[in-house]
């Protein structure tokens, strides 16, 4: 058998090292979240809810080694798009659905609400929805609910100390929330040319209770609504809603 060329040998080493790194990287990226560490940069949402923060030892060289290892894993996660952090519907959906809606507020004090296209109009017999085809649009809209899924109005009122970060979340979502509100406004104005331009457009969340096991059929329990962000089209100003203090806040 002929000897491989130095070029091919070098390539074999490179591929072997890459394969080895992939083999190590995947378990490491999934397990390092359990080891308290000090991240060198703010973590992105995908890993942030899982990563244990802080230190696990007072032996600084060991802690620093783990911190750097975490940084390396995080670098490759982000650079290669292989961000880990898997839970697949854990801890589980709450006993209500959270659906975004756009409320258009007019100068004369009236308002109108555009419900999500993914919220069934028939709450007694909601129809089947086809998989896949509209999922990209669904994901986009659903991403506006992630920060508040486990913050229903009654829980915020009961334990406000856990929800003081909500306005910060809303203000941080300015780009996508404003873009979504602008798009909904564009659609609304095309559908209702007779209406004047609204002075403000509000992104609100509708908490639709799921009937508990054994309850009569239908999603007929009262829906709770709470504003999340407000956009003023004329000035492009944007505010977040403080659900604890019940007031609007600006950055």
């Amino acid at each position: 058998m002929p000897h491989p060329s130095p070029y091919r040998r070098a390539l074999a080493v490179l591929v072997g090292l890459f394969a080895t790194w992939q083999l190590v990287f995947i378990p490491a990226a999934n397990l390092i979240v359990f080891v308290p560490r000090r991240a060198s940069a703010p973590l992105e949402p995908a890993s942030y809810e899982y990563q244990a923060r802080g230190t696990f030892t007072s032996f600084e060289p060991l802690q620093r080694t783990v911190d750097r290892a975490g940084d390396a894993v995080e670098f490759w996660s982000e650079a290669s798009g292989q961000v880990q952090g898997w839970s697949l519907f854990a801890p589980g959906p709450p006993p209500y659905a959270v659906v975004p809606a756009a409320e258009f507020q007019f100068a004369d004090g009236t308002s109108d609400t555009a419900l999500s296209p993914f919220e069934p109009a028939d709450k007694l017999n909601p129809p089947l929805r086809a998989p896949l085809f509209d999922n990209r649009a669904f994901n986009t809209e659903a991403s506006l609910t992630y920060g508040v899924v486990f913050a229903p109005p009654e829980l915020v009122d009961k334990a406000p100390e856990h929800f003081r970060h909500l306005p910060e979340t809303a203000l941080g979502a300015r780009g996508p929330a404003r873009a979504w509100l602008a798009l909904r406004l564009k659609e609304y104005r095309a559908a209702h040319p007779e209406r004047p331009a609204p002075v403000a457009v509000v992104l609100k969340h509708r908490y639709i209770p799921t009937p508990p096991p054994g309850a009569p059929r239908g999603w007929t329990l009262p829906v709770a609504e709470r504003p999340y962000a407000r956009w003023f089209p004329a000035t492009d100003a944007y505010e977040g809603y403080d659900a604890v203090e019940k007031r609007w806040v600006t950055p």
Binding site: L88, P91, P93, E119, P131, T210, P213
Partner: peptide, 25 residues
Amino acid sequence: YKAISPQWRSGFVMYWASHDLYWSL
């Protein structure tokens, strides 16, 4: 993460997921 979730251990999670008006098809 499922195993440490009471909802998953009780099995009711699939009830809530399948009845979620937004996520369920």
